[in-house]
Nucleic acid binder design. Structure first.
Lengths: 248, 248
DNA sequence: GTCCCGTGTTGATCTGGGTCAAAGTACATC
DNA sequence: GATGTACTTTGACCCAGATCAACACGGGAC
């Protein structure tokens, strides 16, 4: 996932969020060219599956625009979303040939991909890239662990507030909105997808959204367009300590 | 966390699970010596806190022996364990000066530590170390995500079975037990710690342990000594698909 | 227009696991 | 031995959120 820091870096290079230009600021020119060589773009439509868990995956890459989800499913159909991929987030794992999760585009999606084998070679020879990937992975690990607290200990209302606060924060960062004042954004997820992220049912999600609306914590226009009049209030509802972490 | 692969590596060097000997098989001698220089050991007694969330942390390290936990706490006291650290697991984060979680020794604990600044320098100059850390971090990320499924979607009984199955598996790997047949181990956690890991209350943990015992899925001698007559049965109870993943 | 169909809301009811309370067990320490 | 303390078990009751069910809202396709 992503926090302010990685986003700031992202803005170095609008086109390609793994931002190899920045990674390679200290690299040799031929390394830069090598990355350029193994790079390609893939586009997906909303609803399309990028890759199924268990499928062979011979690329790694990152989201350029749009949103994708990472989900795990049990045999009986229970599903849990384990990651929300926004622009600049990394997908795939050097050193592993098969996908561990289902990756699904929830909006139209553009990804910047690198062929896996040559990319792995580059890592082996280019410390900056390995370091950068390590940083990004550690950020994701922190986000996953923060989410464990949400899943394990928060109430339904707190879960919803947590999710909204993450999306609001990331959306604001992406769109360079000021830190203060009301925030407005479109939910990129259906109620069902929200439920899968939060370990709830879609009915509970719907009810809690209504409750937050009734209590004035959020305003809703239509089903998806959300305004948060007071971010502090929302974060209070989420049970976050003041600083709010840097979740997802 | 850890899987078979990282464990195998661990066994290269009993003393120091970050296994710098293996990391540095391809390094220069002076790099090896440099690591040796910045390395030191710390011992903790059961129950002692290694570090508090928010404290300054100027080392990274890994567990040599014993068990530690990583926990997050909300202001109102709700706590969620976000990691279980067994021998060879890594603690700390290059590039960050403060601890993000409480780290507590649940048994007597020995850690092998490296001073953070020189360690970070080494990473920058030694691709193998950065790569190895990346691998370990990706393993931990997978474990965290698998745990998200447990927290978000599994029933109390499945949660307990999942935890037991992880511990049984790791214990077997550590002690080189055969893959088949009954497995016996000591629970390294109190009921309360199990509850904090699973997002349950200690009462529910106790009840479900009793239920699993009554149903013959496990045998209990005293409170902590567990025998699993049939690992497949246990994993079925955990709701895992056959292969069982490589959790935690 | 109207017929879908995917999405979202709301109500009624049920239940898994939380909460509160009491008692049991295993070790220390005196 | 008695007393204490940390941990665990078990029971009784309750409630947040799941489940089941009905209905509402858009926005294509025809």
């Amino acid at each position: 996932m992503l926090n302010e820091r990685s986003l700031a870096v992202h803005n170095d290079c609008e086109e390609c969020p793994i931002r190899h230009r920045a990674v390679c600021a200290r690299c040799e020119t031929d390394e830069l060219e090598r990355l350029e060589e193994i790079k390609y773009y893939r586009k997906f439509e909303a609803g399309q599956t990028v890759i199924w868990s268990g499928d062979r995956m011979d690329f790694v890459g990152s989201v350029v625009s749009g949103i994708a989800t990472l989900t795990q499913t049990m045999e009986d159909g229970r599903t849990q979303m384990v990651g929300l991929l926004l622009p600049s987030d990394f997908v795939g794992r050097p050193g592993r040939a098969t996908a561990a999760y289902d990756v699904v585009a929830t909006t139209d999606l553009v990804m910047c991909c690198f062929r896996r084998n040559p990319f792995e070679e580059m890592i082996a020879h280019t410390p900056h890239i390995a370091q950068r990937l390590l940083e990004m992975t550690l950020d994701e690990l922190d986000a996953a662990r923060e989410w464990m607290l949400v899943l394990g200990r928060k109430t339904a209302r707190e879960k919803i507030a947590s999710l909204l606060s993450i999306i609001a924060r990331r959306d604001a960062t992406l769109n360079m909105q000021g830190a203060d004042g009301p925030r407005t954004f479109d939910l990129p997820l259906t109620r069902e997808a929200m439920a899968d992220y939060l370990g709830l049912t879609l009915e509970t999600v719907s009810r809690q959204m209504s409750a937050l609306k009734k209590d004035g914590v959020i305003h809703l226009e239509g089903k998806r367009h959300v305004t948060v009049p007071d971010m502090d209030r929302l974060m209070e509802e989420a049970g976050d300590d003041s600083d709010g972490g840097m979740l997802v």
